[in-house]
Design a binder for these strands. Structure first.
Length: 603
RNA sequence: GGGGCCGUAGUUAAGCUGGUUAUAACGCCGGCCUGUCACGCCGGAGGGCGCGAGUUCGAGUCUCGUCGGCCCCGCCA
């Protein structure tokens, strides 16, 4: 720092006590002696008069240094710079009529500074502390303490706090008990990759950080806690996305003596209370429900964004005998009609073709419906009958475009499902500031893992099958449905849960179909099975992704904007430089030797 | 594991087909200024283009590698 010039000393707070926040003073406070503390946002130095916008987490207040009030203070205030921390004492006064700043909540007043103290200086910050400047995210993450000073980030963090408070209030009032569960637990098969923690006292043994408190909350039900919840960190060592972090927060709950409806209605009321209290938005309950098959049929995805109406249509049968071989032979052919879509340029269509390629689509067939003809590379292959069929099933009108996907069901549904969202954005079909919650029900219990050649749990291994579907596990596992439910809002999976297996018999059958034999089940889930033996009540629950929920509520594009200290896509913290190497002594204590030498802190 | 985009003063960007001292705005520093409010005016400093090789008479500009950030596929019960 430059020590020359008009440097003024840093002073202690002394007996000064802050009287108001920087977004608090109005006309009713005129004549009042106040004491404000905060950061220098803007300095407007007129030589004989200095204006400073003082900022704290609440807002801005203009403070004025003038010779009439305190000439010495004015003299010293020339040295103030951006982000200096100061305390001012002064009198609130009304601004002259034509000097009112309508952009500030405190714009009708200003504080005439009688006395001020410099509490700390600041280097010039690496970026301006403002909402309107766009700064590279790696810089924001490196200087997160500065990034968090920006009003929009303050707002996000504060809203998150209010949301958690609203959720806790609701659950507390609804008879739930918050119970903390271990962060150091054991690794279990199935599910995501675990973060492992080596044990010093038991060398060669490892804890795992919980992917969720699933087993503990079920044990709490076995304990008779009846209604449990927790706002809890969960850890999954998988690759990141805009809406995924390696550590994230769940609002986790579990209830005894309930079926699907019991959990869902508590959940709806909780989410509705949350939106009402934090955002002032009234969500209509009960939420819409859609079964999984229908979601896939209409939207291609199991987390449909139902804020807009475009739907997929199965046209497999219509083009079954088509002269267009791709259509005639495909396992599934679906169409997506976009009203008014024929305005799309060739380039846009090419871009969409590339886009669906991401999901394994080999191409993207399309037809533009013109007044007197169908403009399309594939129109010539379609018979009059096929045209008539498509026309009536899809309700085609001039000006439309129809996209087709003919392939395996997975590819067709994914490609058109994601294309639907792209087109919804392109044609501005998605209303803003709208929240469309819905439940997805009747999921398949199991999923075939082609790589491992075995069935895996679609939800998790503790989910109960639908009544009567237990017997399907032996012969037709793929047909068994789960007593599971997902809450989807605006295309994001916000929560998911299920009714659990609460008998040993049911749980063992589930393990069996997953290829977990009795020995392994005993070793790894023995405590659960044993708990089920001792009068486990019927129970079920759900977990909500708090970060995603807040992201939706504040309108952020990334989960990182609602997490105070998030990690990058490579799971690094740019502020602390975690993860980092450790000393060889630390490793020795843990009984660990690195496969690649020379990567410890001390060599 | 894979695909795409990006990396140039403190920041945000421009830099066409490789060609003299690498631009601009904001910020920063100095000066002036008593009603500004993203104050204004005058003057100034500041980077060799993420890093490393290579091609070339010559490289922000081309090639390869590498590091980092973002988006996505796989993965995420």
């Amino acid at each position: 720092m430059d020590d020359t010039g008009n440097k003024i000393p840093i002073k202690p707070l002394g007996w000064w006590v802050r009287s108001h926040g920087c977004n608090e003073l109005h006309l009713e406070h005129i004549e009042l002696e106040v004491c404000l503390m905060g950061w220098v946002q803007y300095r407007r130095d007129h030589g004989g008069l200095i204006f400073i916008d003082l900022r704290d987490r609440d807002g801005l207040t203009q403070v004025v240094f003038s010779p009439e009030v305190n000439a010495l203070a004015l003299e010293e205030a020339h040295a103030l710079r951006s982000e200096y921390v100061i305390a001012v004492k002064g009198v609130v006064r009304e601004r002259p009529k034509d000097m009112i700043n309508p952009n500030l909540k405190t714009g009708h007043i200003e504080v005439a500074v009688k006395e001020f103290r410099l509490l700390n200086r600041s280097e010039t910050p690496p970026f301006l502390i403002e909402d309107r400047v766009e700064v590279a995210e790696n810089l924001r993450l490196k200087y997160r303490n500065l990034d968090l000073r920006r009003p929009s980030m303050v707002r996000n963090i504060r809203m998150r706090s209010q949301a958690v408070s609203a959720l806790r209030n609701f659950l507390n009032e609804s008879g739930f008990i918050e119970v903390e569960t271990p962060v150091l637990t054991r690794s279990t098969p199935e599910g995501a990759r675990d973060f492992l923690v080596p044990s010093r006292q038991n060398q060669g043994f490892f804890y795992a950080l919980p992917q969720s408190p699933q087993l503990f909350k079920q044990l709490l039900m076995c304990a008779g806690v009846d209604k449990y919840y927790q706002v809890v960190k969960c850890f999954r060592d998988e690759d990141l996305r805009a809406d995924r972090q390696p550590e994230f927060t769940q609002v986790d709950l579990e209830m005894s003596f309930v079926e699907e409806g019991g959990v869902m209605s508590v959940s709806e009321n909780m989410i509705a209370a949350l939106f009402r209290e934090v955002s002032g938005i009234e969500l209509e309950t009960p939420f819409m429900r859609l079964n999984y098959d229908q979601a896939i049929a209409d939207y291609g995805l199991d987390r449909p964004d139902v804020r807009f109406e475009l739907k997929l249509k199965d046209v497999t049968e219509i083009v079954r005998g088509s002269g267009f071989n791709l259509f005639a032979n495909a396992q599934l052919v679906k169409a997506l009609r976009v009203p008014g879509g024929s305005e799309l340029s060739r380039k846009e269509i090419d871009d969409y073709t590339d886009f669906v390629g991401i999901y394994g689509a080999k191409g993207l067939a399309w037809i533009k419906i013109k007044d007197n003809e169908w403009q399309s590379p594939i129109a010539k292959f379609l018979s009059g009958e096929e045209r008539a069929g498509l026309s009536s099933v899809l309700g085609l009108e001039p000006g439309d475009i129809v996209f087709f996907q003919a392939a395996s069901p997975d590819v067709v549904n994914n490609a058109l499902g994601y294309l639907r969202i792209k087109l919804g954005e392109r044609f501005q079909l998605i209303p803003e500031n709208t929240f469309a919650p819905l439940w997805i029900m009747d999921f398949p219990l199991l999923e075939w893992d082609e790589e491992e050649k075995r069935w895996t749990a679609r939800h998790h291994p503790f989910t109960a099958p639908k009544d009567g579907h237990l017997d399907l596990l032996e012969h037709e596992p793929g047909l068994a449905l789960a007593r599971a439910y997902d809450l989807v809002i605006n295309g994001y999976e916000i929560g998911g849960g299920s009714i659990r297996n609460h008998t040993r018999e049911g749980q063992e059958k589930m393990f069996a179909v997953l290829g977990i034999d009795n020995e392994q089940a005993g070793n790894e889930f023995g405590f659960l099975l044993q708990a089920l033996d001792y009068g486990a009540p019927p129970h079920g629950g759900i977990a909500f992704g708090l970060d995603r929920l807040i992201m939706l509520m504040v309108g952020a594009a990334s989960i990182r904007d609602v997490i105070a200290f998030p990690k990058t896509q490579k799971a690094a913290c740019l502020m602390t430089d975690a993860p980092a190497t450790v000393t060889s002594k630390q490793l020795r204590e843990l009984g660990i030797r690195l496969r690649e030498q020379g990567k410890t802190l001390d060599n």
